[in-house]
């Protein structure tokens, strides 16, 4: 197959497969959307998913090897502390990320 044609085919197949994962629940459960279990899931799944995405972001942090997760711990503490204090998402995220970049770029914890 021609290289460009192959590339276009891969992009289209990938787009279709990704769309399918996002659309399938809406196609399958359109009639049962008011089912109590699904309504319940609509409330409790977002907090669970958010917790797991946070955990997933931190999965490569090694506590055994230097810097022992200290930059992540410190930056996360800053994010949480600032957010509990000011409840300004941009401030919490911006300051926490700035602190993290400073810590890793300057090798503060080795």
């Amino acid at each position: 197959m021609d290289a460009t044609l192959y590339l276009i085919a891969v992009i289209l197949v990938m787009a279709g497969a990704t769309l399918l994962t996002r659309a399938l629940p809406f196609l399958l459960f359109a009639r049962g959307a008011k089912h109590p279990t699904l309504l319940y899931l609509g409330r409790v799944l977002p907090p669970a998913v958010m917790t797991l995405l946070l955990l997933y972001c931190l999965k490569d942090v090694s506590l055994a090897a230097a810097p022992h997760g200290l930059p992540e711990a410190l930056a996360l503490a800053a994010v949480v502390g600032l957010h509990l204090w000011r409840r300004n998402a941009l401030l919490s995220i911006g300051a926490g990320t700035g602190l993290y970049m400073f810590l890793v770029q300057n090798g503060v914890f080795g």
Binding site: S92, I93, T97, M101
Partner: peptide
């Protein structure tokens, strides 16, 4: 840009706090 990817980690951390504020339920977490 080393460390800039922490933005998404911080975003999820903030959203976890906001989710708790909205649901007040510990079980999902």
């Amino acid at each position: 840009t080393a460390g800039l990817e922490f933005t998404l980690t911080a975003l999820f951390a903030v959203l976890v706090l906001e989710q708790y504020r909205a649901t007040r339920a510990l079980l999902p977490f």
